[in-house]
Design a protein around this nucleic acid. Sequence first.
DNA 1: TTGTACGCGTTATCAA
DNA 2: TTGATAACGCGTACAA
Lengths: 350, 350
Amino acid sequence: MEPKSPKSDLPTLEDVARAAGVSTATVSRTLNSPDQVSEGTRSRVMATVRALRYSPNFGARALAAKRTNTYGAVIPTMENAIFARGLEAFQKVLVANGATMLVASSSYDPAIEEDQIRTMVARGADGILLIGTQRDPEIYDFLKERHIPVVIAWTGTGVTALSCVGFDNEDAAGKLAAKAIGLGHRRIAFISAYTRNNDRARDRVAGVRHALATAGLDPCDMPLLETKYSIQCGRDAFVELMHARPRPTLVMCGNDVLAAGAVRAAHELGLDVPADVSITGFDDIELATVISPALTTVHVPHRKMGGLAAEALLAQVRDNSAPKQTTLETHIVVRQSLAPPGSRTNEMAD
Amino acid sequence: MEPKSPKSDLPTLEDVARAAGVSTATVSRTLNSPDQVSEGTRSRVMATVRALRYSPNFGARALAAKRTNTYGAVIPTMENAIFARGLEAFQKVLVANGATMLVASSSYDPAIEEDQIRTMVARGADGILLIGTQRDPEIYDFLKERHIPVVIAWTGTGVTALSCVGFDNEDAAGKLAAKAIGLGHRRIAFISAYTRNNDRARDRVAGVRHALATAGLDPCDMPLLETKYSIQCGRDAFVELMHARPRPTLVMCGNDVLAAGAVRAAHELGLDVPADVSITGFDDIELATVISPALTTVHVPHRKMGGLAAEALLAQVRDNSAPKQTTLETHIVVRQSLAPPGSRTNEMAD
DNA sequence: TTGTACGCGTTATCAA
DNA sequence: TTGATAACGCGTACAA
């Protein structure tokens, strides 16, 4: 072993202080609360800072200030457009406020997620963004014990002591189902993401069932398939559901990705969408607009959610403000994939 | 000001040491290099660590060890599937090695990117992942001066002193163009992402031009439109290109997103793809398989790139190994959007 | 407005 | 194998 990491020879606060002919305290103040320093010294110090290309040492700063200005985000995966969007917005707000983002993904695995959360804490995250409420309660105690503010996104229900910014998955899915029922659909099938560790997915199923019951239909009659998050899986599930006789007139999907797979499968089976079978999605990602027919789906304000989550977290950390629950509105986006059952219209849709 | 952030009352190394009846040094060793500690004390210390729910203080650790085990990734945007994939893989490898990822996005803005890079450094990143080579040379000096290893991804050309893991954008685009020319295409147009701060985009254009020249065609004749990264922009660009007479028989796109927009525009114009006009993409993201016709495109191993980038960075930081250039292979994925020109079974073109 | 001086929680060197 | 103890670089009462 030799020079190792000669990260040394970098100027320190003291170097700057000496060069500028002031104390380290003054340099520190100049950097952190400029208005406590007189115009003259301030500019002199700043000049020296630039001249020496000084940059504060992160560890030292964190140690002394007990704050890292770093926030963690633990999400299922970045490869899902809805989280990518949310994260991007989360990060932008953070940066706009001089903070930085740590990211970890859990692959929807609760054990990994817990690990990642602990890692975030160990890495000195000042606050943490989590997706959904579904996890071992112990982890919440852990976070509380360490006074780490948390904001939960993508779910707006069932959260009390924590900040959250989300929407009502159940209600949104229910409204879409109600609309379809109003159109005349009775035989409705559902393709869902795995509900085991996913409260959002579960809520969406529940919403549809509720709508069914409200319409006097038996929710238990609804064929339901759970599967992984991928186009291919949506495709396979759709094929399987189409074996039922009589066939469903509508296949609702827990998200747009599954719905895209369903649409493809329909084409492969020689079925016209929506003439032979209607399909709906959820999320309203770009994908929904690109396939044909374009998906009727539920629009979820992912970016807004990410941005608000960051603001909520920052408020808790910087202003020590209380946790706040925010519920955002969703709305149904009507496109071509949903039509009344058995409606073989000609393809001149708008 | 009041209690602020009572992040106190957390156990420290010293607390553990006292409780376990050993010195702080021993506790530290137990945690960081267990094999330097005897079996007996080790288990005793570990027990106390668990009992006290001790977790090392990040700032203190970073200050003393001069290392954060944190790596930064500065990318154009997470909302682009290719970067999301790469990042996900990058992060996974990092986690597998006990490290954590910081993320910042630049929105393709060089000034913002530079800022983010500096922030990463200020946040104590041990190494940094950058996309492409295109940036102010000064920033490289800055990084070198601070001994921060860098790995550049998405480009495999023109890098010498730094680690990189990428592929030959020019060559890949050239091969696809050559294939199309072989199919008989002569009037080829190109829709590119803005090339101004994007070496990948520029290389792809260059590759096509080169293929044209090789085939005895004049590269300057190729209509070229630069636009933003979005389906809508791809759509608009395509419409504009189709005003030319004679029309191009093939519109190549710098990426799959633009190509998806082009395909949509073709439909809107009543043009059949590929009978009336062929379209190609680049990247091979899921989108390419979902639209119809599915895109003939260039497959780029985004995940592999991200994973290798992490390994390269870790190697440089932990083993102080030398920068390494890695070039990955791409290949053409043949789907339905590219066919010989005028291959409409019957009917004449205007 | 500025300076002094201490403490923050670890790591790592050196002895024992 | 273990223990003292000196850095590490900065923030911040407190004093001037």
